[in-house]
Design a protein around this nucleic acid. Structure first.
Lengths: 198, 198
DNA sequence: GCCCGCCGATGACAGTTGTCATGCCGGATT
DNA sequence: AATCCGGCATGACAACTGTCATCGGCGGGC
């Protein structure tokens, strides 16, 4: 029996995934969590073989959860909507053993759990290639500024929030726009978000 | 036996929801579709009692699907991530019988299917109140322009795409910004998207 | 017929944004 | 010590954006 913990913030999806896995004879869902923090606590309590987690969750993201579980016995599989190279990169850096997309066929999840439990790795093929060829060129400041700009905040507002001068903020944005080959701040933010860099 | 068709573009979620419903003794998943168009075709073929559909899907959205099924025997339940009043409004206008959030507990889905099949309605409580109090104030042109602006396109680019003059585009944006109480086009686009108006 | 709303346009003006050159500072490298 | 680099700043300039007044056309409601 492979003992699995599932972390996923959308209750209905959590329940559905659990139902899916409970149909497998050799897999047992021993715990469910609605966010990363609860998942971490439950992992300590139940000592699962495999942790299946979403990325975008309240309190603690799946990537943070993977980092916190790093080095422990439980093997982590990320299951997410987002085909973002930056996410995969960060996941692998956090010692994750599997990275699947919710676009993939349902049966792949059980297969991935078995593979990972047996010591293997499973990476969504759409991402395996792209992951290493595009690297985040942004500095931390550029990321901060871009995040806020992408939410519609003006240069002045961003400057206030980050305790910078407005000119500096415009410099960072100009830098980021150049690095990403965008035409303006909004496009730059979109590109960075799509890649998983924000 | 309640005969159900499920439409959902994320394969894994589709499979998981089907597994969840197959556990119910009185519910039978007779068909699955990965987009709205296939769902419409399959609905014609299999004549389901209830159609459970996501909103954001390729080829045809769940809202369009609901519109196309309007007046037919099958009853439609929307299951979506998005708590956007505008979506609920459009869903109700399309004759939908249920609107659930993926945040809701998994067991509510089966309950909703039974309720709807019995002639009832099920609306996510988080949304029931807000739905009617905030109405989309935007004109069709304003929506178009705002969509493109929100994607980072410049006034000139939007003008080219929509065959308008740049000044006119700026006028529409200014209008939209004013109506939504935003500070600029990006914030306006965010507000409109959050409400489900785009 | 008249008014109103939506559509589309122009021109003018102030404010914001994007770019670039240039400068200062402190920490790390050599 | 000299050099380099990232972070932060300034100033200047061109381009883009947001606002407003004004105009004409078209269709619907009263």
């Amino acid at each position: 029996m492979i003992r699995v913990l599932i972390a996923e913030d959308q209750s209905m999806i959590l329940g559905a995934l659990a139902a899916l896995l409970d149909m497998e004879a050799d897999i047992e869902v021993i715990a469910r969590a609605g966010d990363g923090k609860k998942a971490l606590a439950l992992a300590g309590e139940h000592d699962p073989d495999v942790v299946v987690t979403d990325i975008e969750m309240p309190a603690m993201t799946g990537l943070e959860l993977a980092g916190a579980l790093r080095g422990q016995r439980a093997k982590v599989i990320i299951v997410t909507t987002f085909a973002r190279p930056g996410y995969l990169r960060r996941a692998l850096d956090a010692g994750v053993r599997g990275y699947l997309l919710k676009d993939a066929p349902a049966k792949q999840l059980a297969d991935a759990i078995r593979t990972v439990h047996a010591g293997g790795k499973v990476i969504a093929p759409e991402l395996a290639a792209e992951a290493w060829e595009s690297d985040d060129p942004l500095s931390e400041r550029e990321r901060q500024v871009l995040r806020l700009a992408g939410d519609g905040m003006s240069s002045g507002g961003i400057a206030d929030q980050l305790h910078l001068s407005e000119g500096t903020v415009r410099n960072y944005l100009s830098e980021a726009i150049g690095k990403l080959g965008a035409a303006n701040r909004v496009e730059a933010a979109r590109i960075a978000r799509r890649k998983g860099w924000l």
